[in-house]
Amino acid sequence: MFFFELINTNAVRINQRLGKKMEKEKDRVPLITEIQRYCISDGPGIRTLIFLKGCSLDCPWCHNPECKSPEIDIYYHEDKCQKCGKCIEICPQRAISWLSSKKEAILRDREKCSKCLKCVESCPLKALEKVGQALAFDRIIDEALRDRAFYETSRGGITLSGGEPLFFPEYSLKLLKKFKAEMIHTAVETSGSYKWEILEEIAEYTDLFLYDIKCMDPTMHKRFIGVDNKLILNNLRKLSAVKANIRIRVPVIPRFNNNKENFELLVDYLQSLENPVLAVDLLPFHNSAEKKYIQLGLNYAYKGEPFMEKKEVEWIKDFLEKNNITTTIGGIIGPEEV
């Protein structure tokens, strides 16, 4: 959606390789999927969200599937495709084929694809779109500072999101430092599933954490996401101890965490923290990402699952508020001081 030029295709490739053996590399440079302005539900006021591409968790309901992999992705916009077959012809890896003999759509084999982007360039109708840009640091800063006048009147700022900002610790830190130097309010959306040392350093430059707690039961957590929640909960405890401002984000997912027990455990846990969190934002399940999964050629685990009505989660809000925990449904907090 942005007209940013690619600064260094080489950097992209290096980055991709780095992405593959990611765990150790602290100074990875992220690809950016989008810098979205006028966001109002990811921290106070009017904000600009910077989406960093790449995450080490794999939540099946993820709303930004394009931000899961740290590598370049390709969207296929079937509605724009004229079925001309040019991309099939040009692909050096023979990764693209017709979906069926009816030629009603194309199919890209994600495994075979080497991300050379020849197909994207050759498509006359822009039905193939590159996802993820290697943006120069200054470009990101410039774009994010453009709405400064709105941050001032609305007490807004920037939010690092993704993906997972902590997946790119050095780079996120560099961004946050720069924004703090510019006197901009900073928020970081995170799953908290990283080494405490990283989080600790980030916390120094973060005015607000939007901290995901998906579920309290470690087995369920492991079963759905692939890792248990021990590290996440420990980190939160430490974060609370250093007096960070924290809002807890709970995606309410059917058959996963929308049960009383989970929220009872959550309350117990939150009440045991050294300093209270600011609030809990409940994010009821929505299937709005389905189309993105299809465009990326990914499987969507919640296909056909109806979105959750606001009223279906009201009981959770009531329950939390009874326990003196400020709660929103949807996370719009308006121009508030944090």
């Binding site: 449904i329 949807g330 719009i332």
Partner: peptide, 22 residues
């Protein structure tokens, strides 16, 4: 056209027809 759906924001046209209907 951006619509907000309980915490998530989405470009309306990016949604599946089913999601749009809801």
């Amino acid at each position: 056209l951006i619509v907000r759906v309980a915490g998530y924001s989405a470009r309306f046209v990016d949604l599946s027809v089913y999601a749009q209907d809801t």
